[in-house]
Amino acid sequence: MTERHRRRVAVRAGKHVLLTAVALVMLYPLLWMVVSSLRPDEQIFTQAGLLLTDVDLSNYEDGWDALGQPFSRYVLNSLLVAVGCIVGNLVSCSMAAYAFARLEFRRRRLFFAIMLMTIMLPIHVIIVPQYIVFSQLELTNTFVPLVLPKLLATDAFFVFLMVQFIRGLPRELDEAARIDGAGHARIYLRIILPLMTPALATTAIFTFIWTWNDFFSQLIYLTDPSVYTVPVALRSFVDSASSSSWGAMFAMSVVSLLPVFVVFLFGQRYLVRGIATTGIK
């Protein structure tokens, strides 16, 4: 009995050691970035270790003001874009999802399939025509090209996620409301929306993280430094063809990771619930 017990403890300890080791390997790049942000530039690439001999905060001071505008400006711009995208996705995708899940209309399956196929279009395919449209409208260097498409339910992934979720809700609820005289608008607003909070939360969190990390479209549309977002600003620290301020970039990367970290910390619960209940794994 005790022999067996001891063996079980040993196995469990072994598992923990292994898991901790793997976790450390996964975390190493992140930790290295944090440590490097506290080192002078010329030490960064000659030291692979995580040991800090002395803490040097100058990267944070320099990096914050290095790009012409204080870094808070870029954080604010990124937040504006992210909030716009979240609102856009929540409103438009839930409406589109309601239509696909609850309305009967001709060629519904066909349209649904077409909508799903747009998930597979890489950004590089649509960016040029999209750019031409927005540049003709003189909307480059504003957040409109980044936010407006979200208001038109172009993120098919979220439409799909919500459709799956709504399909899981009992139709009896809709029908009861209809008998009481509710139309589609009312059913959508009063019945479906409140019930799909987990899917909405998932959408909001994913939209935040994806928008926060999106680089390519923000690079293309935002050329004036005063409307730069965090990813675009971060990239101007680094240039493979000339000198790069690695220390400052690492420092500001740490700063820009904080919002994502916080969102994930608080949103993790909803994220798991939202995904687990929609049948998407």
Partner: peptide
């Protein structure tokens, strides 16, 4: 008005802008 970026990013952007017929008036060219 300025449009600046790191080397690789700049040419990603310039390609899109040029395709959209709205490249910068003056550009650094490699």
């Amino acid at each position: 008005e300025v449009s600046r970026a790191a080397f690789a990013d700049y040419f990603d952007r310039l390609a899109t802008e040029t395709a959209g017929r709205s490249g910068p008036d003056v550009t650094r060219m490699s």
